[in-house]
Design a protein around this nucleic acid. Structure first.
Lengths: 151, 151
DNA sequence: TTTACTGCAAAGGGTTTGCAACATG
DNA sequence: CATGTTGCAAACCCTTTGCAGTAAA
């Protein structure tokens, strides 16, 4: 059975490879961001990331998140909050999921759909994309409402 | 069969009622915004709205969109663009749909899912929400990729 | 006539960028 | 050792807000 260390090692390896493939380096700062996102159970804002490790600098973190996103290591999660949030990409975590987004506090929790539903959705998405001559890269399913803590 | 004028009249009536219910007035500026959103086939950014009718003023338009959103007349569509986009709410258009979002140009097109899929999704969403003690208000399904014009 | 609303201009605040020093492969 | 990366601080730009005058019910 995989230990936390296994998981962490796999994540860093995948991240390093994705970055290298785009000509980027896997620096200390990027490794720190990936570790923080991996440890957090949910998408983090930049302030949360900076707070998670005091060695992180704001401007570099913004810059690195752009690059991590471009390389497919991290993905941006848009809530209705002021701050963008980031999580590790599915290419790194190997874990497809969706989001429960609290309209009050902006916090995000993950949930999954049964594989069967995910499959029929995928078929419908393909149909809708073709009809519109749209080249789909990914989908995003969010539930918006109020979380347990805010009700 | 409903004419464009019928549709427009229904929309304005619904908007006026929703606003009044919250103690707001249906002013000329708000009517102008609702008309522009209703005419456009897709969500509009503020610059697009301002361009659509030169009588619209930037600050008032921002303020009015906050109020229209709060009253349930308009809804905010978050793309990966710099600008927020707005469309008429389903309460006004009576038309449930989802979005194809172009990651290049930010433009948005609508699509629909078969009623059967929409129903089974709704059931799953209810299940996931209950499991997380989450009070769901609505869902959002977006396909992200490249539109016909940008490929 | 009351009170919500508007327009103008200025401030706010998350995010981006220029630049010189630094670290990575 | 060539070049991608960092930290600092300043700039950016979408959005919000204060205020005095205006319009809606």
């Amino acid at each position: 059975m995989p230990t936390p260390t296994d998981r962490s090692a796999r994540i860093h390896e995948a991240a390093a490879e994705l970055l290298r493939a785009d000509g980027y380096r896997y620096t200390v700062a990027r490794r720190t961001i990936v570790a923080a996102l991996g440890d957090a159970g949910a998408p983090l804002t930049i302030p949360q990331l900076l707070a998670a490790d005091s060695r992180l600098v704001q401007s570099s973190t913004y810059r690195n998140l752009v690059i991590l996103e471009e390389a497919g290591v991290a993905s941006r999660v848009v809530t209705s909050d002021d701050h963008a949030r980031f999580e590790l990409d599915e290419r790194v975590t190997d874990h497809h999921h969706h989001h429960l987004i609290c309209l009050d506090c902006g916090d995000v929790r993950d949930f999954e759909l049964p594989a069967g539903i995910e499959r029929s959705l995928q078929a419908e998405f393909g149909r809708a994309s073709r009809a519109a001559m749209f080249r789909m890269e990914r989908h995003r399913i969010d539930l918006l409402g109020t979380c347990a803590g805010c009700s």
